[in-house]
């Protein structure tokens, strides 16, 4: 199964405080372990939300909201995509992660819907659209 692992934001990450050299080294080692175990699919750190934008939807209207955003604990400061056998394994890997922030912090693990989860509910139109996306990805890379 695939999981998305979110490093939640803190006041420090929102202030753009860069991680210490020590943390960078520790995090590098941790990522190395993930690669060696064949768990890692992708991962990145995100800039503070003062550089972010939101688009709010209400019926036909679209409103652009500039960051920063207030509810710090609900924001995301980084993510990984992992492939693991089950949630237990994902939890175990997260426990091994160095604390990504100078102070208290949280990491959240969210299992992905796989295509097969949608098999029952997807309309033919939606499927056609997704097929188009898959092919477009292929084109863009080729």
């Amino acid at each position: 199964m695939r999981v998305m692992v979110f490093v939640k934001a803190t006041a420090d990450s929102e202030a753009g405080v860069m991680p210490s050299t020590e943390l960078l080294i520790e995090m590098g080692k941790f990522n190395e372990e993930l690669i060696k175990a064949g768990v890692m699919l992708a991962g990145d750190g995100l800039k503070p939300t003062r550089q972010a934008k939101r688009v709010a939807f209400d019926g036909a209207s679209r409103t652009v909201i500039d960051g920063p955003f207030a509810e710090t604990r609900e924001l995301v400061a980084g993510y990984w995509m992992w492939e693991v056998k089950d949630m237990d394994e994902a939890v175990e890997w997260v426990k091994r992660c160095p604390n990504p922030m100078p102070g208290p912090s949280e990491i959240e693990i969210r299992p992905l819907y796989e295509m097969s989860d949608f098999a029952e509910i997807m309309t033919p139109e939606a499927e056609a659209l997704h097929g188009g996306n898959a092919a477009a990805m292929g084109r863009a890379d080729g």
Partner: peptide, 30 residues
């Protein structure tokens, strides 16, 4: 996911529903 129909019968490549293909795997593969 697209290779096997609901009845367990294989679906040949030309008849596969390409919407069921996993684009993130395709991307990593490419």
């Amino acid at each position: 996911a697209a290779r096997v129909g609901a009845d367990g019968v294989p679906v040949a490549l030309p008849d596969q529903d390409r919407g069921r293909w996993d684009w993130s795997m395709i991307r990593r593969g490419l």
